[in-house]
């Protein structure tokens, strides 16, 4: 009986870990030295390490790209023209920040 309960608990925990609210969160700021830092994570505290971040121009051409590191962070040179930064972690997990909003 106790064993059955333990298995049930484990199953519930396993299911639970997959059904957390998992909202992506992403922002960038200007380092005032010609570079940008972009940081990402998830609302449930899950790691965003390895997620691809792209810096694109107004036509969508990729200017720079890099992956978030263990600190959920990546650094880019600030492009001179119009640009945006895109966090892509699957179809429902994409966030775009316009370059003008990065201060």
């Amino acid at each position: 009986m106790r064993m059955t309960r333990s298995y049930l608990l484990l199953i519930l925990l396993a299911l639970g870990s997959q059904s957390h609210a998992h909202t992506p969160l992403f922002d960038c700021f200007d380092n005032s030295d010609g570079t940008l830092t972009c940081e990402g994570g998830f609302s449930d505290g899950a790691s965003a390490e390895g997620i691809l971040i792209r810096v694109v121009d107004a036509q969508g051409k990729v200017l720079q790209q890099g992956e978030l590191d263990a600190r959920g962070s990546v650094k880019f040179d600030r492009p001179s023209g119009e640009f945006s930064v895109v966090f892509s972690a699957g179809d429902d997990h994409s966030i775009t920040i316009l370059g003008d909003d990065i201060v």
């Binding site: 994570g41 790691s47 390490e49 590191d69 263990a70 600190r71 959920g72 962070s73």
Partner: peptide, 11 residues
């Protein structure tokens, strides 16, 4: 007077 912060997961 200080703050404690963990940046990322597992750090």
């Amino acid at each position: 007077f200080y703050y404690s912060k963990r940046q990322g997961v597992g750090t």
